[in-house]
Amino acid sequence: MKDELNYIGQKIMKNKTVLAANVTQLQANLLTNETLEESRNESSSKLIELLGRSLIDNQDVSNEIIEWAHNEASFLVDNTTLTTALRSLAYYRTVIWDVFTEELEQQQFAAITMLDVSKIIDPLLDEISAEYGNVYQEHNNNLMKIAYTALEELSVPVVPINKNVAVVPLIGEIDTHRSQLVLEVTMEECSKLKLEYLILDVTGVPIIDTMVADNLFKVISALRLLGVETIITGIRPEIAQTIISIGVDFTGITTFADLPTALSSIDLKIIKTN
């Protein structure tokens, strides 16, 4: 039995180039022309060699298999779906079994040899499938992080009014994470735009409690160090009542009922300065 497996393994390794071309031909219906460059034949040949070696004296090629799978999946992830990648992987099994079936008939190997080959080859292909899944999952996670970061940045839009003034319309809840984002974005934009005034419009903030107020104070203090005067607008009457009832002190912070009033005040300051 061992001799039969060694024979098949050596046969596969000897004909790896031809077998790789057969795999490429079978994959042509699934993969685009872009993924069927000459380098793909080299990659296919490498896997076939590893599968052949696994049959010779039951060599342990697991680490090399995983490395191959990672490299292959890293290429495929930008070119095709995971479903298509897994379907294309099945063609290696097809090509290997074609070789085995031919030798089974010609050399009259024992029928149990078929089971022994399967016990060795199938787990290796399963390892490749698992690594494909890992690479694709990591890729998707990275895309989600990028999309989430972009969405977060859009949630803190800094809108320039003129060369001195910009407005940040805040909408939704302001938790610790978002307040940190507000701080980072406003500091970066104020420095880049060389702003003198920044208006934080909280009309769309549903509630201002001690935590939200504390977060806003941190933003205002940090911007003050940059020489930016921060103004808060849009505190609705019911929000004002809540602020008073919980004892939040806005003393020292410039507030206005609405954006137009704040802009008028800034214009007056600029006129007096000039």
Rank of each mutant, 00 (worst) to 15 (best):
D258L: 00
L259V: 13
T254Q: 07
I253M: 07
I244M: 12
I239T: 04
S265H: 15
D267T: 15
K272N: 15
P260V: 07
D249L: 09
I270Q: 15
Q241Y: 08
Q241I: 11
I246V: 14
T255R: 07
T254Y: 03
G247M: 00
I253Q: 06
I244K: 08
T255G: 03
L268A: 14
D258W: 03
D267V: 12
T254E: 01
I246Y: 10
L263K: 07
G252F: 02
I253E: 10
I243Q: 08
I253Y: 06
T251F: 09
G247K: 03
L263R: 08
I266K: 05
T254P: 01
I266A: 07
S245C: 04
Q241W: 07
L259C: 10
S265P: 08
G247Y: 02
K272P: 09
L268G: 11
P260Y: 07
F250N: 14
A240L: 01
P260R: 04
I270E: 14
I246Q: 13
D258F: 03
I244D: 09
S265C: 09
I244S: 12
D267H: 13
I246M: 12
I239D: 00
I246F: 09
L268T: 15
K269C: 11
S265D: 11
L263D: 03
D249Q: 10
I253V: 08
Q241M: 10
K269V: 07
T255E: 04
A262I: 02
V248G: 01
K269G: 10
D267Q: 12
T242E: 00
S264C: 12
V248S: 00
T261W: 03
A240E: 03
I243R: 09
T251E: 12
D258N: 04
L268S: 14
T254W: 03
S245I: 07
S265A: 15
A240Q: 02
K272L: 12
I246N: 12
D249A: 09
K269F: 06
G252A: 04
V248E: 03
I253A: 04
K272A: 14
T255P: 00
I239R: 01
I266N: 05
K269I: 05
I271L: 14
I271E: 13
L268Q: 15
I246R: 14
V248K: 02
P260T: 06
I266M: 07
